[in-house]
Nucleic acid binder design. Structure first.
Length: 258
DNA sequence: AAATTTTACAACCGCGCAACC
DNA sequence: AGGTTGCGCGGTTGTAAAATT
């Protein structure tokens, strides 16, 4: 079977995303929703493959993502579920609202795995070997999850955690559209609309969002910027997509596009 | 202070599944 | 029924930042 290779076309950008690219993707998805990852970058004015856009959106840009600052409870869930399921990161992520499978996987490899290993081999220097990544080996002691371990605190002030907890948002991406219809605002992770606005307006949104429309007009034809021209049956209205993605009702997102 | 090593995270790659035609 | 396509998942790699020497 001949597969469509991601980024097969030359000219498609790879590597780290720029704030400008992020803005384009967020602006597009916020307005038009997710309808076809393969086509979205084209209409969003991005020289990226759909797969790259999807990953960026799911793991970093979408609303309600929690970054860093793993709670003891979350780590316990990860460890326990990993013991039960193995490397089923998507399934584990489904139990941790706002966490992505990728982030959980990273956290496991960089923190939890090592910590569990240390716990299982107390008071001895690293006796070699075992190292290797058999993720199902360290399951022996899920209950040894050291709630008071100093390392649990290390992420608290992580500079790599710029985005505060926004809310429940299952990362089980295949169920993304459906699951997000749940009332995430009501759950334990819900935050104020002010917080959301702060996130949306802060940091990489260093400039007034409305000003970002300029890229659309400058960088590519309007027919591409506004796919309803080409796709009058665009599947998701702006309002619906905002609701779907959990943006705050108090914010006048329409203003961004005026 | 500079060089080196380690850590943490973002992003890419390839495979497999399921829907569609 | 079988081919094609898009998407999701998990493994892996690249790299910037932090820590150590």
């Amino acid at each position: 079977m001949v597969r469509t290779i991601c980024c097969e076309k030359t000219g498609l950008k790879k590597g780290a995303w720029t704030p400008e690219e992020d803005k384009k993707l967020v602006a597009y998805v916020t307005r038009y929703g997710l309808w076809n990852w393969r086509e979205i970058p084209k209409y969003a004015g991005l020289s990226r493959c759909g797969k790259s856009c999807r990953l960026r959106w799911l793991n970093y840009l979408r609303p309600n993502i929690k970054r860093g600052n793993y709670s003891k409870e979350e780590e316990e869930i990860i460890i326990n579920m990993h013991q039960a399921l193995g490397n089923k990161w998507a399934a584990i992520a489904a139990k941790l609202p706002g966490r992505t499978d990728n982030e959980i996987k990273n956290h496991w490899h960089t923190n939890l795995k090592k910590r569990l290993k240390q716990e299982s081999k107390p008071a001895h220097t690293s006796e070699g070997g075992s190292e290797c990544e058999d993720n199902n080996k360290q399951e022996s002691e899920p209950s040894t999850l050291l709630p008071n371990s100093p390392s649990l605190q290390t992420s608290e002030n992580s500079p790599l955690s710029p985005v505060p907890c926004l809310s429940d948002f299952s990362s089980s991406s295949s169920d993304f559209m459906v699951e997000t219809s749940t009332n995430w605002m009501a759950d334990e992770y819900a935050v104020s609309s002010d917080k959301i606005a702060e996130v949306l307006s802060g940091d990489f949104w260093t400039e007034p969002y409305v000003a970002e429309n300029s890229y659309i007009q400058e960088n590519f034809p309007e027919t591409l910027a506004y796919p309803e021209i080409l796709f009058p049956l665009s599947p998701i209205s702006l309002e619906e997509s905002l609701r779907t993605y959990g943006f705050c009702e108090d914010i006048d997102y329409m203003e961004w596009f005026n």
